[in-house]
Design a protein around this nucleic acid. Structure first.
Lengths: 229, 229
DNA sequence: ACCTGAACACCGTTCAAGT
DNA sequence: ACCTGAACACCGTTCAAGT
């Protein structure tokens, strides 16, 4: 049944990680298994263990990819401009593989490029007047918000296989519109917006704006407090 | 070895879900398996299938718990006060089971109590002047931010078993402090803040503040725009 | 209504062995 | 250096059968 006229790509660590990301994109990250990967490479499951210590290391390597493929940062302008650039870079990179984006979070501090990114982010936040604790919380929040934006986008349904997403979404919307309008007027009114996204760019822009706005506002009120004391 | 002088609690759907949440809390959500639960209830794995359709339904039921156990909402004050109350209720409920909190996200619109919460949240946002799309995005963001706050708290390490968390955290911190200070001054300075949280209440307050501040600021600038046109 | 027994198709992983 | 074979201890789940 599974006629693999596979292009016979060489079995390397990078190739494995790439395949794993591809599988996660179309079938969700639960679909990436050692045995499945082996099959796609036309090789014994144990062959993978030469290139990757175990499955955890594979998932880690998948998470690392996002930092290694980060677009270049535009680091001009105010600190909040630069923070926005960080967010946009993250969203850009994570958006390439929504099904695996959540794997990035655990790797920021383990990965070289992730450490660099964190360093510069902490730098801009502390120079803006935030304390070490505040800067750390905000930096963590920035990364997590970026992950959230790409994985939770309305209609992304990252956990379900690509060819079932439509059906799942239709069912979801139907369930909402079937609700009694008297009790759930807002839910019914927002049914479309809650189950689909018809302007990705606007969605991402709004999400990033929301985050940056919060940081700017906190910074302003922190400064005001400091002036008082 | 596993001498189960089990209190022999009755096998019911609620009991199963409760046990599952407890397991996830101390060993991470990967540790909850049908067979493991059966063992703890001193019963055959197949016995569980009478009370729960399959594992997905079990995970869904775990997610539902958070909405069913939501504390009462203080719905007085301005729209942003009420939005803050929603966030605090979510953080409160999710904080009871950090290891399973991520399961809540997929269930908001499927769960009765989740629908209610979404309805009132959308209501307060739209009455504040946000569009249906904006309100939907913000509501989704609010839930996801709450999940993030409890699962990503520095030192929570929700995926690793409780008795290994200390070792993992020590290793993490050691890795950071071992970094060259010239290249990573901020990372080193924030090592403690990045790997541990010494004031949970302050951490949650800051996280909620950050979110609310963002929404308030966006609302202000949206209003200004509307006035112009 | 509620649970068991046996069986199936999957997992990740180890270890010794091949080339 | 890179891969295979055989084996082990786990999964979720079905289906027929018991009480």
């Amino acid at each position: 049944m599974i006629t693999k006229t596979a292009p016979r790509v060489e079995l390397t660590r990078d190739a494995i990680v790439g395949r794993a990301l591809a599988i996660a994109d179309v079938e969700g990250s639960d679909a990436v298994t050692i045995r499945r990967l082996a099959q796609e490479f036309d090789v014994t499951p144990m062959a993978l263990y030469w290139h990757v210590k175990n499955k955890d290391e594979l998932l880690a390597a998948m998470g690392d990819r996002f930092y290694e493929e980060l677009p270049e940062l535009d680091q001009s302008g105010s600190w909040s401009d630069r923070l926005r650039a960080v967010m946009e870079a993250l969203v850009g990179s994570l958006g390439n593989h929504p099904g695996s984006a959540h794997l990035a979070a655990h790797r920021v501090l383990a990965n070289e490029a992730g450490q660099q990114l964190t360093e510069t982010t902490l730098g801009m936040l502390r120079s803006a007047g935030f304390s070490a604790t505040q800067a750390s919380d905000i930096a963590r929040s920035a990364l997590q918000s970026a992950v959230m934006l790409v994985t939770q986008m309305a209609g992304a349904e990252v956990a379900v296989a690509a060819d079932e997403r439509d059906a799942v979404l239709r069912a979801k919307r139907a369930a909402i519109t079937a609700l009694p309008v008297e009790r759930f007027p807002n839910l019914v009114a927002c049914a479309d917006a809650l189950t689909g996204c018809d302007d990705e760019a606007a969605y991402y822009a709004f999400g990033v704006d929301l985050f940056i706005a919060g940081v700017e506002r906190l910074n302003a009120s922190t400064k005001r407090q400091n002036r008082k004391t």
